[in-house]
Structures are given as structure tokens and as C-alpha cells.
């Protein structure tokens, strides 16, 4: 060949750290340990330091990003066992109203309302949605889409729980920094815990349920029980985010059931990539600051999320995270062709 351009070809090599089974790691050197550790430690450390440097508006954005990150993680967790929710705002809103209601009417302090709302929200979610999870396909998505909207309309129409005005003057968490740290910590703990769970046998069963629930049943496993556990976990995570938000803003209104909280997590997962949780987290960390930048556009924001969502599903179905991960694991060199 004579053209200079054709003298080289790309050579690609996968780093061979994962030997045979993915439970066995052969870590040979500091370089390899760093190679494994850095992509985990750097972002986590960065997020943990961030609240120290941010104030006022940007601190709120950080809390927001962590909230949406939690919702996206919860969505991804449900999806890993084949339940696709279009109503993350149900989880969020239940947690928010539980915390708000308990604080407003019974004057329970946040130390109590946070855990109660987290667990109670999870329980209510799994109780409400248990009948639906027996059915596969679009039913689950349909019902989860409807419930928050109907809750919102119900609150609007009946005036219960503060009606359209919402409940205000709730107790704050001690200090804004405390809630910022709670949000960041909750987010990171959830991220790493989910990643661990999904690689354990428990996660294996969940993913198998998504692939073929019947084969799992023939293995003597109660898939409905497993699915309601997954619902409880995902619901709790969403409810925690909602409860934290309530106390952070010292206010809860019907907007917690709004579409934003349902759409943005899905968009985050679609952008970041499904199945690894890191993708969901990354997606939320990209989309939330972006949407703050777009705040000036007002209502158009949601339309833009939707476009991002559609575009990323159509053009990069594996998601940004999986793409980056693949590239990180590969050496690419140009090799001369002789």
C-alpha cells in the first residue's frame, strides 16, 4: 500500500484483569490497584468534598443532583428485575408527604421522620404496587405513571394534607451543610451498595427474574416475594430522597408528584446507561446541572430532557457510562502495517 493513511491500523487490547470468573481478581501491582480504585475513589472523594466549597445556590443544585441521582438509582434497581417505572415521583412524593405530614401534624423531629418516611414509603410502595407486578409488560409502567398524577389531583381536589398550598414551616435539618452531606452520603452509599448487591447472588436472582421469570420459578424461588423486596428497596430509596427534600426546603407541596421527578431519572438512566448504577448516577450528575443551566427556558426544560432521552436511546443505546467503561478497559494503539 502506498498511501500514508493506510499504513497504520488500530490495535485494540482489553486489559486482562478479570480472569475466568468475575469473582477472581488477579491484582499484580500498584498500577493495577490504582487502575481499579481510581475511577471509584476519585468521583466519590470529589462529591464528598464538594459541599465544603459550595454555598447557597450551587449547594442546592448539588442536593438536587443527589436527589435525582437517588431516584435514578432506584429506577435502575427496579429495572434490573424487569419492572419499568414511569412514576418515580410516586416514591419521591410518598416519602416527602410522609415526612412532611408527620412533622407538621405530629411535630416529630426530622431525626424520626426521615427513617420513618424512608421505611414507610418503601412499605406503601410495595403494598400499592404488589398487585401489578404479577403482570409483565406495560402494566407496571402504566400504573406507576398514573398513581402520582392521581395522588396529585386527589390532594388538589380534596384539600387534604394542605391541599394546593402544601405544608410549610416544617423543621429544617440542623444546618444546610448537614442536609447537603446527608444527600451526598445517601447517594454514594446507595450507589456502592446497589453495585455490590447486583453482583451478589441476590442481584443475580433479580436479573434472572428479568430475563425469564418462569425459569426462576422452576428453581423454587418465589419471584413475587423477590419483586416486592425490590419494590421496597427502590421505594425506600425514592422516599428517602423525598423526605430529605421536604426537610431541606422545609416545605412539601403537591409538586412532589410532578412529572419532573419521573422523567428526569429515566432520562438520566437512558443517558448514562442501564444496569450498572454508575450509569444512572453519572446521568443524573450530567443532567441536573444541565437543567439548572436551562432554567431560563422554563417549561421547555422538560421537552429538552425528553429530547435528550430519545436521542440517547436512538444513538447510544448502551449509554455514556458503558461506552466510557469499555474505552477505559481498552488500550488503543496505532500499529504500523507492514
Amino acid at each position: 500500500m502506498t498511501e500514508p493513511g493506510s499504513k497504520f491500523r488500530k490495535k485494540r487490547l482489553d486489559r486482562g484483569i478479570k480472569a475466568r470468573a468475575d469473582t477472581i481478581f488477579a491484582v499484580a501491582s500498584w498500577r493495577e490497584i490504582l487502575y481499579l480504585l481510581l475511577p471509584r475513589a476519585l468521583p466519590a472523594g470529589f462529591l464528598l468534598l464538594l459541599p465544603l466549597f459550595l454555598d447557597g445556590y450551587w449547594e442546592k443544585v448539588l442536593v438536587y443532583a443527589c436527589m435525582f441521582g437517588l431516584l435514578a438509582l432506584s429506577w435502575d434497581f427496579l429495572a434490573s428485575c424487569g419492572l419499568f417505572s414511569l412514576g418515580q415521583s410516586l416514591f419521591f412524593g410518598l416519602g416527602a408527604y410522609l415526612a412532611g405530614g408527620l412533622n407538621y401534624y405530629l411535630h416529630w423531629p426530622p431525626v424520626v421522620t426521615l427513617p420513618v418516611a424512608t421505611i414507610g414509603g418503601g412499605l406503601i410502595c410495595s403494598a400499592l404496587l404488589s398487585p401489578v407486578m404479577r403482570l409483565r409488560g406495560v402494566y407496571f409502567a402504566m400504573v406507576t405513571l398514573m398513581l402520582p398524577i392521581l395522588f396529585m389531583k386527589g390532594i388538589e381536589a380534596t384539600g387534604l394534607l394542605g391541599g394546593t398550598h402544601g405544608l410549610s414551616a416544617l423543621s429544617p435539618l440542623v444546618h444546610d451543610k448537614v442536609s447537603a452531606y446527608l444527600a451526598v452520603l445517601g447517594f454514594l452509599v446507595c450507589l456502592f451498595a446497589f453495585r455490590r448487591v447486583i453482583n451478589s447472588d441476590y442481584g443475580l436472582v433479580l436479573m434472572a427474574i428479568r430475563d425469564d421469570d418462569r425459569a426462576v420459578m422452576s428453581g423454587g424461588i418465589n419471584i413475587y416475594w423477590r419483586k416486592s423486596q425490590a419494590l421496597f428497596i427502590a421505594g425506600s430509596v425514592g422516599a428517602f430522597a423525598g423526605a430529605l427534600m421536604t426537610h431541606h426546603y422545609q416545605f412539601v407541596g403537591k409538586s412532589v408528584f410532578a412529572l419532573d421527578y419521573s422523567i428526569l431519572p429515566v432520562a438520566a438512566v437512558a443517558l448514562g446507561g442501564q444496569g450498572s448504577f454508575a450509569g444512572a448516577a453519572l446521568g443524573a450528575m450530567i443532567l441536573v446541572p444541565l437543567s439548572e443551566a436551562l432554567r431560563a427556558l422554563g417549561g421547555l426544560r422538560i421537552a429538552i430532557y425528553c429530547s435528550i432521552l430519545i436521542l440517547s436511546i436512538l444513538t447510544l443505546p448502551e449509554g455514556v457510562f458503558h461506552y466510557m467503561e469499555r474505552k477505559y478497559q481498552q488500550f488503543e494503539t496505532k500499529v504500523e502495517v507492514r
Partner: peptide, 26 residues
Amino acid sequence: ARTFQMVRLFYNLPAYKNVIIPLCSP
């Protein structure tokens, strides 16, 4: 226990992980 005429397996998982599923049963 039964096997299926049309095998139903988890094709994305490594073969041995398929066997782990029933091992997780009560």
C-alpha cells in the same frame, strides 16, 4: 424439578451462574 422441552435458560449469564439460581432457593 423439571426440565423444559424448549430450554429456558439465562443466556446472558455464564453457564455456572444459571445453576446458582436454584441454589439460592429456600
